Simulated scan of single mutants.
Amino acid sequence: TARFGSGDDALVLVALAGGDRAAPGAREAAAELCHSVAAAVGRSRQRLAEDIRAGSREALRSGLQRLTDRGYGRLRAHAAELGLDEEGYTAGLRGLLLPVDPQCRTRVCFGAGAGGFFRLRAGQWQDLEPEDTAHPPVDAAGGFRFRASVARPGDTLLLCSGGLAAPMREEGLLPAELAARWSQAEPPGLAAFLADAQLRLKGYADDRTAAAVWEA
């Protein structure tokens, strides 16, 4: 999580990445990808903030896709330097851009590979990232993901790695339980959030990395 800029023109970036636990260097690849994309967002912060304010979705999509593709390109180059398999030294990425300006309610999600971006609204979960087949990235398996939406008070936005996204999409018990727990007047504390994110379902044992934003 990082803040770029100051005042109402600032942007907050929430980013996470998760790779194949069995692949050599998977954790390092995930961390490298997050830092690379975050640095690129920081350098492009002013243009991104202007596009968010103006509602320029196509400009945001193309700009964030370029940043994402460059991040994966750096991973590919580093894998070659390390003598590792390029397909193994990678990770699924999810990022969320939040304008600090309270008058701007636009929320921008982007990423590629395994993972998910969900919104809890009025007690119901919505999957916010249908596959974008018209804008495939250079090399991220799973396709580029982009969604710009307008937040409402009471919304909960959830970014997660593939280990949590899969049961959120494939099972009814987990999203129903999280909806019940997270539809309260106040968001959970850190310990409760960690426990909620680790609710187990048989057949789903992959790593779960998650970040959530509760709209005031």
Rank of each mutant, 00 (worst) to 15 (best):
A2Q: 14
S62V: 09
A79F: 01
Y72C: 09
G88I: 01
L75H: 05
G115I: 04
Y89L: 04
L93E: 04
L173R: 12
A38F: 00
A114T: 05
A179V: 03
A114S: 14
H135R: 14
L157M: 13
S36P: 01
C109W: 01
P130G: 06
A211G: 06
A54F: 01
A39W: 05
F110K: 13
A122H: 09
G154Q: 08
F110I: 07
R208S: 09
R200S: 15
S62R: 15
L201Q: 14
P167Q: 06
A30Q: 05
D196W: 01
S6I: 02
A54I: 03
A10N: 13
E170S: 11
A192T: 14
L16W: 02
L67F: 03
R152C: 07
G73M: 09
S6L: 08
A30C: 06
A79Q: 02
G172W: 02
G123I: 03
A165M: 07
E28T: 03
D207Q: 14
D139M: 08
Q46L: 11
L174W: 05
H35W: 05
L82F: 00
A141C: 02
S36L: 13
W125H: 12
V12Y: 01
R21A: 14
P188C: 07
Q184D: 14
D8S: 12
F146I: 07
R27K: 13
Q46T: 15
I52W: 02
E50Y: 00
